[in-house]
Design a protein around this nucleic acid. Sequence first.
DNA 1: AACGAAGCCAACCGCTCGCAT
DNA 2: GATGCGAGCGGTTGGCTTCGT
Length: 332
Amino acid sequence: MGRTPCCDKANVKKGPWSPEEDVKLKAYIEEHGTGGNWIALPQKIGLKRCGKSCRLRWLNYLRPDIKHDGFSEEEDQIICSLYISIGSRWSIIAAQLPGRTDNDVKNYWNTRLKKKLFEKRRDSWQSRRLSNNMSPDASSRALSTSALERIQLHKQLQGLYEPFSFYNSPALWPKFQPLGDKLFFHIQHPDANTIAATPVQQASDATMIEPSGQNVFNPMDASIQEDLNSSTLGFPSPSSSHGALSMENSNSNFNAAAVGLQDELHDLLYQEIGCSGGHEQQQQTKLDCFKDLNGGKESMNWWATDGFEKSSSGSWDSASNLQADLLQEYMG
DNA sequence: AACGAAGCCAACCGCTCGCAT
DNA sequence: GATGCGAGCGGTTGGCTTCGT
């Protein structure tokens, strides 16, 4: 059989903590510790709170090493860098920031940092558009070629600069990889009609294998067109007025946008936000993070095995939401 | 001064995983 | 092996504060 019930939910207090409750909880934990049992703790000290609530209050607010002041620029950079690499794994990100809790980091990202990043992206793009003398219509069409290209470009940039990046491990792309590779291949080889699949494609997309057993890849095949004509990868359709991405779109438009985006991402990730301390520092941040992953109960396998698909509310879905947000930001 | 909108953050909710029974 | 609790985590919400009109 299991253990005794957690708490009588009808008799527990909810809502903000009073100073008296804080004092009781803090005094008890400082003297006795948690005793390894949060559920029993509120009863011991006469608090009408759920153990879970006590734990949260202690970890997020009462703990003596908690920082209550604002986030520094350095912390901003670490959060951005890690979010880009590992997504919304707030506990891991918070572990790199002494005195910060996952809740703090999460709130800070959602309320301020994300906005800051978007503003910089938009400003960066607008200035680039002006300097490239692109008409608003042409630029929006180039940008509307879909979020996928952004992800692929991002992936390539990440790969260039960050060998440990998720984006640099195609096998870790169970959800987006097949169509992404198809499209990116076509972007790089617009004239290709049929070509042997890359190992990555073979591994990631069973539909690429012909009944004959020969692996072929036709970037313009019906399934791709279908993918492209639907709301690609769950992202909103790029532009209702232009319809979905069409391969007939001018390649030059895309190439211009691609070059711009590479610069843009580079600026954004490694100059404006992510690497005032230089690339080495950022790489070190990553290494520290992965050291934790490997040293703790987690291994790198979580990425490869279930990082993407384990749940509908998983980290990478959130990261992909960011990508969707980025797209919408441009479309808006 | 009054009101609504936006920003912010503490706390809750629901889920997963590991472990005890 | 099945069941259920505890701990931990990420997403969401509700309410307080600040800002703009």
